[in-house]
């Protein structure tokens, strides 16, 4: 069964034009799903809906067979425990006033997860490849790639079933990006992931399924291998052909 199902979801801000229309797709348990689109595609808005930060105007989102009810505090507490996120900008996603220990254990405290929070944080830091003594330091002492690792540690510390990532490697330098993509690959073996990105290369490297969004609608969805080899929609084709490639070896 699907861990998450999005059914005919639509959304608009205020009385404005619809940002999302008739969005339907599944996130099978254990899979990595990529939501790909350019600016104005509505992909970030869709992610906010999946996180329960906004409520769809129409349609519904099912998580583990149950409708996502962003208005119920009790439901959201259990939902947050099972669904976590990583954001784009490693410089703005960590509170500069807090030590790393406090940042990484925030979900544990807020969700009242029982157990030794420090030990759990140490385990999460080890999982993202950072030394344990980082926990006593402040965000400003880390590089962009390290900060993103810390953000990932925070996302996995409560052992969620689903991690949603919003352009989580776009702000990183190329050499750092490859390593963080590898880290996501490692982590995704243990959980389901939804990866929102404009970068088809990153999504191709990480995801087994791809959903292509354009101006608030799904234009194409399917297995990564199939979409890369045989894109059906003109938009997908132009997206793929626009990506600059490295010159072939002589």
């Amino acid at each position: 069964m699907s861990l998450m199902s999005v059914e005919n979801v639509s959304f608009a801000y205020g009385a404005g034009r619809p940002v999302l229309e008739d969005i339907t797709f599944d996130v099978p348990r254990g899979s990595n799903v990529g939501l790909v689109g350019e600016s104005g595609s509505g992909k970030s808005t869709l992610l906010r809906l999946l996180l329960g930060l906004d409520t769809p105007r129409g349609g519904r989102i099912l998580f583990d067979g149950q409708p996502l009810d962003a208005r119920s505090g009790r439901y959201m507490r259990s939902y947050r425990r099972r669904v976590q996120a990583v954001f784009q900008d490693p410089y703005s996603s960590l509170n500069p006033a807090h030590r790393i220990l406090r940042i990484v254990t925030e979900p544990l405290r807020s969700l009242k997860v029982p157990g030794d929070h420090r030990a759990m944080a140490e385990e999460a830091m080890a999982a993202v490849g950072l030394p344990v003594d980082s926990l006593g330091r402040f965000p400003e002492q880390f590089s962009g790639g390290q900060r993103q690792r810390i953000a990932i540690a925070r996302a996995i510390v409560a052992r969620p079933e689903l991690v949603l990532a919003d352009e989580a490697v776009s702000a990183l330098d190329l050499s750092t990006r490859v390593r963080v993509v590898d880290l996501f690959r490692d982590i995704s073996e243990r959980m389901t992931m939804v990866f929102v990105s404009h970068d088809m290369g990153v999504v191709a490297a990480l995801c087994d399924r791809i959903v292509v969004l354009d101006r608030g609608r799904i234009v194409e969805a399917g297995d990564t291998a199939r979409i890369l080899a045989d894109p059906q929609h003109a938009y997908t084709r132009s997206l793929l052909s626009s990506i600059p490639r490295m010159p072939e070896s002589a």
Binding site: S175, R177, V178, V181, G201, A204, A205, A225, L240
Partner: peptide, 18 residues
């Protein structure tokens, strides 16, 4: 070499060779 390898990783992913 590192940079070129990294760029080729994403390229080959696009060719369906992860």
């Amino acid at each position: 070499h590192d940079l070129v390898d990294a760029a080729r990783r994403f390229d080959s992913a696009l060719e369906g060779r992860p």
